[in-house]
C-alpha cells in the first residue's frame, strides 16, 4: 500500500480543486467501500495517492423537502435516510432500500452518494491483490463466465464482456423514484447515472455528487423495495426490486419497476410497467408483472434461478 495524503477540505469547491489537481486522488466519505478496495488491492489501476474527506464539509448531510422536491445531501448516512419519517412515508422505497444495506455498523458510516457510487461486487473482480485480472480491469476474460456466477452476476447479459452486477440497494430505489443526481457539474437523471463499465457511473474526473433530488410523488402513488440475499444482513442482493406506481380509479396509471442485483446497472423492467398500466394491483397482476420483469432475461449457466428470485421481488414489492 502506498503512503496516502489526507485532505479535509472546507467546501465542495475546495474538494473539486484538490480532486482535479492531484492525480490519483479519491473522494472518501463513509469509507466503507473505498477502504475495502484499497486494502484488498484488487484494482491494478486504482491506487490513490490522496484521500479527500468530504464528510467533514459542513452542510452535506441533510434531508429536506423544498418546492415539491426531496433533497438529500450526499454525505447523509444510510441510517438517517432509513429512519427519516418523511422518507419512510412518501419515499418508502428509498427508506426500505437504505435499511437493507449491509449492517447497522455500515449504515451508520456509509453515505447515500457512496452507496450509489460503489463499484461492482464480483468475487473475482474483488479478490485481493488482483488475483483475477479480469476483463473489467483490462484483462482478457471474465472469470465468471467459465466459473461461478451463481450470486453476483448478470441475468441480462454482459454487453462489454463483464457480467458483474451493480450491488447498490439504493440505486434501484432512486431510479424507481425518478431521482436526479445533482453533481458539481450537472443534473443527471438517476436512470442515466449508472454505466456498464468501470467505474459504473458517468462521473467525470473532478466531478462530485452534490445532492440527490426526488420529485415528491403524488399522494395517490406508492413505492416499495424488496431484496433477497443469502443472509438477511451483511450481504448483497441475489436480486432486488424497487417499484413505484400511481393509482387512479383503482388502476395503475404509471409505474416504474426497477431490478437490482441482476444487471451491471439498475435494470428498468419496461415490459412489467407496460403490463401493469390500466390494471389494478392484485396478487395475480403482481405475479404476472414479476414474470414480465424478467421476460427478456438471458441468464448465465449458474444463475438462471435468479429470474425467479427477481420476479418474486417485484411481486412482493408491488404487494408490500
Amino acid at each position: 500500500m502506498q503512503p496516502i495524503k489526507y485532505y479535509e477540505p472546507k467546501t465542495l469547491d475546495d474538494a473539486v480543486k484538490i480532486l482535479t489537481t492531484i492525480p490519483d486522488a479519491a473522494i472518501i466519505a463513509g469509507g466503507t467501500e473505498l477502504l475495502h478496495v484499497i486494502r484488498q488491492n484488487c484494482l491494478p489501476t486504482f491506487q490513490p495517492t490522496a484521500l479527500i474527506n468530504i464528510k467533514k464539509i459542513p452542510g452535506l448531510s441533510y434531508i429536506k423537502e423544498e418546492g415539491g422536491t426531496l433533497k438529500i445531501g450526499p454525505a447523509t448516512t444510510l441510517v438517517d435516510i432509513a429512519n427519516n419519517e418523511t422518507v419512510k412515508t412518501k419515499y418508502r422505497a428509498l427508506a426500505m432500500a437504505a435499511a437493507h444495506v449491509a449492517s447497522p455498523l455500515i449504515r451508520n458510516m456509509g453515505t447515500i452518494a457512496g452507496n450509489i457510487c460503489q463499484d461492482v461486487w464480483c468475487w473475482y473482480y474483488r479478490a485481493s491483490d488482483n488475483q483475477f485480472n479480469c476483463i473489467r480491469k483490462g484483462g482478457a476474460i471474465c472469470y465468471a463466465i467459465g466459473g461461478d456466477n451463481r450470486y453476483y452476476h448478470s441475468i441480462f447479459g454482459g454487453p462489454r464482456g463483464c457480467y458483474a452486477v451493480c450491488p447498490s440497494d439504493t440505486a434501484p430505489a432512486l431510479v424507481a423514484l425518478n431521482a436526479t443526481i445533482v453533481t458539481t457539474k450537472r443534473n443527471i437523471p438517476a436512470e442515466n447515472f449508472f454505466t456498464e463499465l468501470q467505474p459504473g457511473n458517468v462521473l467525470e474526473k473532478g466531478e462530485i455528487v452534490k445532492e440527490i433530488q426526488i420529485p415528491t410523488p403524488p399522494a395517490t402513488s406508492k413505492s416499495a423495495f424488496m431484496k433477497a440475499a443469502i443472509r438477511p444482513s451483511i450481504d448483497f442482493a441475489l436480486a432486488s426490486a424497487a417499484v413505484w406506481y400511481n393509482i387512479s380509479g383503482g388502476n395503475v396509471t404509471e409505474s416504474r419497476i426497477v431490478l437490482g442485483g441482476v444487471y451491471l446497472t439498475p435494470k428498468r423492467a419496461k415490459a412489467a410497467e407496460d403490463f401493469l398500466k390500466g390494471k389494478a394491483i392484485t396478487g395475480e397482476t403482481a405475479a404476472a408483472a414479476g414474470k414480465q420483469a424478467v421476460i427478456d432475461a438471458i441468464p448465465m449457466v449458474g444463475n438462471a434461478y435468479k429470474k425467479s428470485v427477481a420476479a418474486a421481488m417485484v411481486t412482493k414489492a408491488l404487494l408490500a
Partner: peptide, 14 residues
C-alpha cells in the same frame, strides 16, 4: 477457481 486454482471467496462476505 478451476481456471486458476485460486480462492475466489476468501472473505467474510463471500
Amino acid at each position: 477457481d478451476p481456471q486458476t486454482g485460486r480462492p475466489y471467496n476468501a472473505s467474510m462476505l463471500d
